[in-house]
Amino acid sequence: MPLPLPLPKPIREIGRKRINRAPSPLLAVAVPWLVVMAGSLSPMWPVIASAPILPPIGFLMLVAWEQLRPGILPVWAGLPLGLFDDLYSGQPLGSAILLWSIAVILLDFVETRFPWRGFALNWLFASAVIAAYLFLAQALAQPGGVGVPLAILPQLGISLLLYPLIARLVALFDRFRLMPVREA
């Protein structure tokens, strides 16, 4: 047996196949949609809550994608993604379609009006959008508008604090999306 054992093949390949590679067009297009849809599946996570505490992960991811890569999701993306979210979120069907569509149009407007934004400004805009979304969503969920706005305050706090983390996660997925895997 040759003493210096050969390294496993995947390790030997590291760095060798970086040159002359391009991202896969399928990954580059599909990853943002899939990530937002995976966030929308959060009601299937092993959390059974007796109060609204979990942030709307799908919506946070949508906002993060819109801020990180404006235009990567078309401006009508709120319709299909909102429909998918409505199927699982427990909100009345149509609530996310309406609110997500408006949110994407609004974020698109912010992008054209204020193109130069730093982290703090991004967080500020995202906070305003998320707060408005949570408030309107709870108003739409309660027929007759007898909601208890105080009940969403813990959820709002968690969502706003979690947003930068979600944005970093989305940035990670963005790097994954553009990984050079295909021979150019």
Binding site: P74, V75, W76, G78, L79, G82, P92, L93, G94, S95, A96, I97, L98, L99, W100, S101, I102, V104, I105, L140
Partner: peptide
Amino acid sequence: YSLAVAGAAAGGALL
């Protein structure tokens, strides 16, 4: 943009 606004309207109608 037309599709986006139509999507929002469709959401309202579904509600």
